[in-house]
Amino acid sequence: MRVFEKTKALTDMPLTYCPGCTHGIIHRLVAEAIDELGVREKTIGIAPVGCAVFAYDFFNMDMMQAAHGRAPAVATGAKRVHPDSVVFTYQGDGDLASIGAAEIMHAAARGERITTIFVNNAIYGMTGGQMAPTTLVGQVTTTSPYGRDEELCGKPIRMSEMLAQLPGAAYIARVSVHDVRHVLEAKKAIRKAFETQIAGEGFAMVEVLSTCPTNWGMTPIESLKWVESDMIPYYPLGVKKGA
């Protein structure tokens, strides 16, 4: 009886993410979708700068590591050279919603046939828990020690809703991985985002609400609960664009 099988699309390299962080789940979902679609050997993944900077060690396929925020531009270059390949970016909220806001907007606007996995954990993880453009109002981080002040830096950006406005975006969804039911839904959305690219329909993105127990200062369980109690109300789940 086969109980569990490692996906081919992940290497044997042990993940370096913190205990309780949901990056591992998201990696697994992406890898499963790629394997199920049978496209691993023609997939090019683009790793960001952020916690997933080492993604090129974990995804077992051709990988490029991009400068901070530039993954959609790098993906554009790769996709234009190999239009039959499957190209995805894997980016965090600082990378995608802050320093790389222009790149993701224009990749979506062009209807770039790429898939973006946007991991939103409302904080800069790798650099030690600074405020992100997605940090919730009142949320304490190392650069918002009194809680995010709306007067000082506005409200968090809802990237999925924003990108869904662009005609070039074919599929945009926000999902969460804080419990099994949501993980299964996230899996479906990620697969759909790759199918959208393969069908040549346009830009596809799945925003995955993720946890950062280390920088949130919570236990893994508390983190999962916080996604449900605090993040989802501000970042409503669902398909924002496309079927």
Partner: peptide
């Protein structure tokens, strides 16, 4: 071939990175 007017100089050079990394003369 492909000509693409990038949204910025920053994007243009990173598109070059992606295309060069994919084996093209760019």
């Amino acid at each position: 071939g492909t000509f693409l007017q990038a949204e910025s100089e920053v994007s243009a050079i990173n598109m070059v990175y992606g295309a060069a990394g994919s084996g093209a003369r760019v």
